Amino acid sequence: MRCSDRTPFPAIFFDRPAPEVAPDLIGAWLRIGATAGLITETEAYGANDPASHSFRGPTARNAAMFGPPGHAYVYRSYGVHWCLNVVCRRGEAVLFRALDPQLGLDLMAARRGADRPALLARGPGRLGQALGVTRALDGLRFDQPDLCLSPGETPAVLTGTRIGITRAADLPWRFGWAGSPHLSRRFPATTASAPG
């Protein structure tokens, strides 16, 4: 089933704390233009989370995080990679860390300069590059034909601590599809939650 054939998640789905939304997005379809795939890894960032861009309040850069739920928040990481998030409750967002590519693989490969599907969208920077993410998506709703999030699979979900941060690094707010080869990094030995 293609993302464009499915009904997008309603805004109310995202109007919850990010740590609740993040695991529920594992297995969901993410589509941007002619490219799409199943989300395999996410990270949650809360309003009172010192690792979150929203922690010190609204700025021009993070304004979308304080907007309506179900909208995109895009930022540039290390001045190189565009990273894609979905806004949850005010000041909270879920970062898309990895994707199992399903549609537009040739286009993703051309953008990435790599043709192995397992490497196309493993990690938030690679995912952004493969899907053609730019700042132009910042603040847009995820319920459009060329920018949508919709229900997909319901896999078992792994939980672990977030990657690449120094503040609140012990929070178990990273989630991944158990057994997927499309993860940015392995999860520590842990018990996966049951699907559904």
Score class of each variant (00 low, 15 high):
Phe66Met: 11
Leu95Phe: 10
Val21Arg: 00
Asp170Trp: 06
Arg89Leu: 15
Trp82Arg: 01
Ile32Phe: 07
Arg31Gln: 13
Ala130Asn: 00
Cys83Phe: 01
Pro17Leu: 14
Asp115Ile: 09
Cys3Lys: 00
Gly70Cys: 12
Pro181His: 09
Phe55Leu: 10
His71Ser: 15
Arg122Phe: 03
Arg162Trp: 11
Leu147Met: 10
Thr161Met: 05
Thr42His: 07
Ala168Glu: 10
Asp15Pro: 00
Ala47Gln: 14
Asn48Val: 12
Asp138Cys: 12
Val86Lys: 00
Gly113Val: 03
Gly91Ser: 10
Arg185Glu: 12
Ala110Ile: 01
Met108Val: 04
Ala28Val: 04
Leu171Lys: 14
Ala98Gly: 13
Arg186Cys: 05
Phe142Lys: 00
Val74Thr: 03
His182Ala: 05
Ala63Phe: 03
Asn62Ser: 11
Gly91Arg: 08
Gly125Asp: 07
Ala130Gly: 07
Ala156Met: 03
Leu103Thr: 12
Gln144Phe: 05
Ala63Asp: 11
Tyr75Gly: 02
Leu119Ala: 14
Pro124Gly: 07
Pro8Val: 07
Val157Pro: 01
Ala34Pro: 15
Tyr78His: 14
Asp100Ser: 05
Leu140Ile: 04
Val87Phe: 01
Pro69Ser: 15
Tyr75Gln: 03
Ser193Ile: 04
Tyr78Trp: 15
Thr159Gly: 05
Trp173Ser: 05
Leu131Ile: 06
Ala110Arg: 09
Asp15Glu: 14
Trp177Gln: 04
Ala136Cys: 04
Ser4Asp: 13
Thr154Lys: 09
Val94Asp: 04
Met1Pro: 03
Ala72Phe: 07
Leu127Gln: 01
Gly160His: 05
Glu43Ile: 12
Gln144Ile: 03
Met65His: 09
Gly27Asn: 06
Thr7Gln: 13
Thr42Gln: 08
Cys3Gln: 01
Gly104Ala: 06
Pro17Gln: 13
Leu158Lys: 02
Gln129Thr: 12
Ser54Arg: 08
Ala44Asn: 12
Ala47Gly: 10
Gly79Ser: 10
Val133Thr: 02
Pro117Ala: 06
Asp5Ala: 15
His53Cys: 08
Val133Ser: 00
Leu95Asp: 03
Gly33His: 07
Thr161Cys: 14
Arg97Ser: 08
Arg135Met: 15
Arg90Glu: 15
Thr7Pro: 14
Ala118Trp: 06
Gly37Glu: 02
Leu137Cys: 05
Arg126Thr: 01
Ala44Phe: 11
Pro181Glu: 10
Pro8Ile: 05
Leu131Pro: 00
Ile163Gln: 06
Ser150Tyr: 01
Leu99Gln: 02
Ala44Met: 11
Ile165Asn: 02
Gln144Trp: 05
Asn85Leu: 10
Ile12His: 11
Pro50Leu: 10
Val86Tyr: 00
Pro23Cys: 09
Arg2Glu: 11
Ala22Trp: 04
Thr190Phe: 00
Leu105Val: 13
Arg6Gly: 10
Pro145Val: 09
Pro172Tyr: 06
